[in-house]
Simulated assay, not measured.
Amino acid sequence: MIDVYSWATPNGHKVHIMLEETGLEYRVHPVNIGAGDQFKPDFLGISPNNKIPAIVDSDGPGGKPLSLFESGAILIYLAEKTAKFLPTEAGARYATLQWLMFQMGGLGPMLGQTHHFRIYAPEKIDYAINRYTNEAKRLYGVMDTQLGKTQYMAGNDYTIADIASFPWTRSWQNQGIELAEFPNVKRWHEAIAARPAVIRGVDVLASARQALTDDKAREMLFGATQYAKH
């Protein structure tokens, strides 16, 4: 049994989708990041960086429990545990890992900043909005070029590179993106969105998430609490 500690965010959805795609048995434990659940000692014992998602696999390597944080590491672990969505042939494996790292190091962080300055920042700073919106467009362009060559991000097979990237493209409107301008991304996005496991995965905890409108939630996510020692 895998216990997943998560919330309905793009990083959470990566793991929800992977669990649905692999068919592994799992239990969901909501970590309401707007209420400050990510700073509770029990969660910090699993995820010392106070970020979701994190998992505890009661049947980890050698039959021993394993706790793991960082969504990319979790995807690799689940792929290796199930022998799914991460090729074993060296060339295809490294192609998958490089596009996974593209998401972890570029697509996720930059689109996160785009969301922040366009949607959540209390002060609208034109320089920041323009910088990150332009970077979002550049990254979509990188994806569009790649997806003009292959069906999926790392080749012609669906992999954890796609599972990692897809949730970040679900809010393309908030990122200042016109998806029609990136036809290969649009084709890829629509194909993945129609997968039954993806539909189930993005529904996990979706009803629990609330719009970020109150001052307490903003403080928990963006204020001094985020930078305090826990």
Rank of each mutant, 00 (worst) to 15 (best):
E20W: 04
A121H: 11
K81L: 04
E181M: 09
L212K: 00
K40F: 10
V142C: 10
G223Q: 06
V28K: 02
P109N: 07
V56D: 09
R93T: 04
V31N: 00
M1D: 14
A164M: 11
E190N: 03
A180C: 06
A92F: 07
K149Q: 06
F117M: 04
R209L: 06
D162K: 12
G223L: 07
A54I: 04
F117N: 05
H16N: 11
I199H: 13
L75V: 02
I160G: 11
G155Q: 04
P87L: 06
L111M: 00
G60W: 05
R131A: 11
N32Y: 09
A90C: 13
Y127A: 13
K40P: 13
A228E: 14
G34Y: 08
K40N: 09
A154K: 07
M1T: 03
L97Q: 07
N130Q: 15
P53T: 01
A180N: 12
G112E: 07
H16R: 05
D3T: 00
W188E: 02
D59A: 15
P87R: 11
Q226E: 14
R209K: 15
A95I: 01
K84P: 11
D59L: 10
A197D: 06
A136E: 08
Y152V: 10
A194T: 05
E123W: 08
Y77W: 08
G108C: 00
F85W: 00
D157Q: 14
S71N: 08
E20S: 12
D59I: 15
T159S: 11
K229F: 14
I55P: 02
I76Y: 01
L212M: 10
S71D: 12
A224E: 14
S71M: 04
N174M: 15
R131D: 05
G141I: 08
E181C: 12
D162P: 00
A35M: 11
I119Y: 08
G36R: 07
L97C: 04
N130E: 15
K124G: 06
T88E: 15
Q210V: 14
A194P: 14
Q38S: 02
A164T: 01
Q175C: 10
H29C: 13
N134W: 10
P65T: 00
I74W: 09
K14Y: 11
V142Q: 10
Y152Q: 12
L68D: 01
A164H: 07
S171Q: 14
R27D: 15
I74P: 08
T96P: 00
K229I: 14
L100G: 07
S6D: 05
L97D: 10
T169P: 00
W99Y: 01
A208W: 13
A83E: 15
W172F: 12
P183C: 05
D203S: 14
D203C: 13
E181S: 15
R187D: 11
K216T: 15
D42N: 13
P122K: 03
L68S: 01
A121R: 13
S165Y: 02
Q175V: 07
T159W: 11
P65S: 07
L24T: 01
N184W: 00
F85P: 10
N134Q: 12
Q38G: 00
T150E: 02
D42T: 12
L78T: 09
M101L: 15
T9Q: 06
L107N: 01
